[in-house]
């Protein structure tokens, strides 16, 4: 297995644990690698990204808190970015494959009150994480955008 393949497998596993608390099933790992290896299967831009996109993915891959921040940031400010695309790919693989599909299908709250209380807490918490993510990641985003510009201009 190449280093690159090992990294994709690790990435898929980290993302799966983040979304479901469980490791990625072998079927999901295999498809995650296959999707990355086969650029003809998606739009050329889908698996690449800007420098900041790649940085966000690396932050996400590094640890759970890193991924939490990177997800919060991209969930609001980079909704079509590389990290989000990879997370959604993992979600689609997890929902198609047992046993993670069962976890995704399972309702979380037991009561309607629990749902509404959970909603308030979740929305509040997600807002707080987003604020922190801005503090940490926005400066990096600005720096990366400036650094990326000459390359983009050259490409154009």
């Amino acid at each position: 297995m190449s280093d690159q393949e090992a990294q994709w497998r690790r990435e898929c596993d980290v993302f799966a644990r983040y979304l479901t608390g469980e490791p990625a099933p072998p079927n999901a790992l295999r498809h995650y690698v296959r999707w990355h290896q086969a650029p003809e299967l998606h739009a050329p831009s889908a698996a690449r990204g800007t420098g900041f996109d790649r940085l966000l993915v690396a932050v996400g891959r590094s640890s759970w808190p890193g991924l939490r921040l990177a997800d919060a940031y991209s969930g609001r400010l980079l909704r079509t970015g590389l990290l989000r695309r990879k997370l959604i790919l993992v979600l689609s693989l997890l929902e198609s494959t047992a046993p993670t599909s069962g976890l995704i299908d399972q309702v979380g709250s037991r009561t309607k009150f629990g749902f509404w209380a959970g909603m308030v807490i979740r929305a509040g918490w997600s807002g707080c994480v987003f604020v922190v993510s801005i503090g940490v990641l926005l400066p990096l985003h600005v720096v990366c955008s400036i650094a990326d510009r000459p390359v983009e201009e050259e490409l154009r």
Binding site: L19, R68, G75, S92, R122
Partner: peptide
């Protein structure tokens, strides 16, 4: 398949998924 719907919620993906399950 739920991933097309989960991603349309206005949160990060983890919050969207937890909300969606409920």
């Amino acid at each position: 398949l739920i991933h097309p719907l989960v991603q349309s919620l206005p949160f990060d993906l983890l919050t969207s998924l937890r909300t969606f399950r409920d």
